Amino acid sequence: MKKRVLSAVVAGMMSVMLMACGSTPEVSEAPEAATEASEEPAEVAGAAKEEASYPEDVQAVIDRGVLRVGVKNAVIGFGYEDPLTGEYSGLEIELAKALADKLGVDIEFTAVTAATRTELLDSGDIDCVLATFTITDERKESWDFTTPYYTDYVSVLVEDSTGIKGLGDLVDATVGVSSGSTSAKSLVKAMIEAGVISGDGFDEESFDPATWTDGVKFQQYDDYPTISTALSAGEVDAFCVDKSILAIYKTEGRSYIDAEFAPQEYGIATTKGSGMSAVAEEIVSGGLSDGTIAKLITENGLD
Rank of each mutant, 00 (worst) to 15 (best):
V16C: 14
L121Y: 02
L95A: 10
E81I: 10
A48L: 03
V105R: 11
G90Y: 03
I126M: 06
L103Q: 08
V129T: 05
G12K: 12
F133R: 08
I107Y: 10
S53L: 02
V44K: 07
T118E: 15
A60Y: 08
G65N: 11
K102F: 02
D101S: 15
C21K: 05
A98H: 09
E92R: 11
V71A: 12
D57T: 09
A20L: 12
L67H: 11
G70T: 05
V112P: 04
T134W: 00
T132C: 12
F78M: 03
E56A: 15
D101K: 15
V58R: 10
G124A: 06
E36W: 04
A30Q: 15
D63K: 14
G124Y: 06
L121W: 02
L18W: 07
E36C: 01
E32A: 12
V16M: 14
L99F: 14
A33W: 01
K72T: 15
P41G: 00
C21I: 14
Y88I: 04
S38Y: 00
A33V: 11
R64F: 08
L103I: 08
T134K: 04
G22Q: 10
I62E: 06
S53R: 04
K97L: 13
E50N: 03
A100E: 05
G124N: 07
K49C: 00
R117W: 03
M17A: 13
T110F: 10
L120W: 01
T35M: 04
T110W: 02
E39W: 01
E50S: 09
P55G: 05
S89F: 03
G90S: 03
T116I: 06
L67G: 11
V75W: 02
G104T: 06
P55E: 11
D82F: 05
E50C: 02
G22S: 13
S53C: 01
C128Y: 02
R68I: 13
K102C: 02
E56V: 12
I76A: 08
A33M: 06
S89Y: 03
R64K: 15
G22N: 13
A34C: 01
G12P: 12
D106N: 15
G86E: 12
P25T: 02
V71T: 15
V71F: 05
V69H: 10
L95F: 09
L95Q: 13
G124L: 06
P41Y: 00
E26Q: 11
